[in-house]
């Protein structure tokens, strides 16, 4: 039997074909040509920078309440964005909030992504009754609105940073499972996989050597889009009082505390609101660009 076995699955996935160096260069040049992608990239960089070095940049202690200086409008007494109802510096609280947003977004994607991917691979590759059971669980969970599910889980396990990450992950893994499974289903029918099976390559090796590398692109795209979803979900949940607890700053609870001052002190609610919007926009821009660039097949979906 003479069957040509393509060592690299490049024929089906052009994205993986180029070597590491050229791939980065390719991405960079593509990024330079897309203004949305670039905008998103810059916003994300800024966010990461703030979350990593924010505590040295912030002009004030985000937790320090100076009662005599409450509700100062922006640009007074060195408070660039003003102070809140307890006299805390809004800029410093927003920077600290950025860190919390990033931690929550990234941690949730890591947990939900890992778990969802494992379930998706098992389900898609091994099929059988396990697939049926797992996918029905996914179906049932998908029939609940995401934010409602997160709130219910939060109400049960309690509030706080760890619990909010956990509840977002419990609510979010299904998307990963679904997407990964459908990718695996398509992959396992490809010639290079059938060929490997025919030549007697062990299943585990097929899984790790051939299937997993080909999943990176969709997982990275999905992750980048999901981070935005989680950041917004965290803001919603904190807004409703289930998430990060005051006095710890999070954009969601800053928004919620500020809303009663909307008529008298607009800066309390405006700046965190704008921050949430810009972040969501940036991550979405970047995710869209990534999708268009890495996976031409998905274009237009």
């Amino acid at each position: 039997m003479t069957i040509e076995i393509p060592e690299q699955p490049g024929s089906s996935r052009p994205a993986v074909t180029p070597g590491k160096q050229s791939k980065l260069a390719f991405l960079w040049s593509s990024l330079l040509h897309s203004w949305t992608g670039m905008t998103g990239f810059i916003i994300i960089l800024l966010l990461l920078f703030l979350s990593l070095f924010g505590q040295w940049i912030a002009p004030f202690d985000p937790m320090h309440a100076e009662f005599s200086k409450k509700l100062l409008p922006p640009m007074t007494d060195g408070h660039l964005l003003g102070t809140d109802q307890l006299g805390r510096d809004i800029l410093s609280r927003m920077i600290a909030g950025a860190r919390i947003s990033v931690i929550i977004g990234v941690m949730t994607v890591l947990i939900a992504g890992t778990f969802g991917t494992v379930v998706g691979i098992v389900s898609g590759y091994f099929r059988g009754w396990l697939d049926v059971v797992l996918m029905r669980i996914v179906d049932v969970q998908l029939s609940f609105p995401f934010i409602l599910l997160v709130l219910v889980i939060n109400a049960i396990i309690g509030t706080g940073l760890k619990n909010i990450i956990l509840s977002l992950a419990i609510g979010g893994w299904v998307i990963f499972a679904r997407v990964v499974r459908s990718e695996v289903l398509a992959l396992r029918e490809k010639e290079f996989i059938t060929a490997s099976v025919a030549t007697g390559v062990p299943r585990i090796q097929i899984l790790f050597k051939h299937i997993l590398p080909n999943l990176f692109t969709p997982i990275i795209i999905l992750s980048s889009l999901q981070i935005a979803t989680y950041i917004i979900a965290e803001a919603s949940v904190s807004f409703l009082g289930f998430g990060v607890q005051p006095p710890n700053p999070a954009w969601g609870n800053m928004l919620s505390e500020g809303k009663d001052y909307i008529f008298s002190s607009w800066w309390l609610i405006t700046f965190p609101g704008v921050a949430i919007m810009i972040t969501a926009l940036g991550v979405n821009f970047f995710g869209d660009w990534l999708r268009d660039t890495l996976d031409p097949e998905l274009k237009g979906e």
Partner: peptide
């Protein structure tokens, strides 16, 4: 939160 005048703000101020 919101049951008594400024309740959650009072709590945060006490914490401070």
């Amino acid at each position: 939160n919101g049951r008594y005048p400024m309740d959650s703000q009072v709590a945060q101020a006490i914490a401070a």
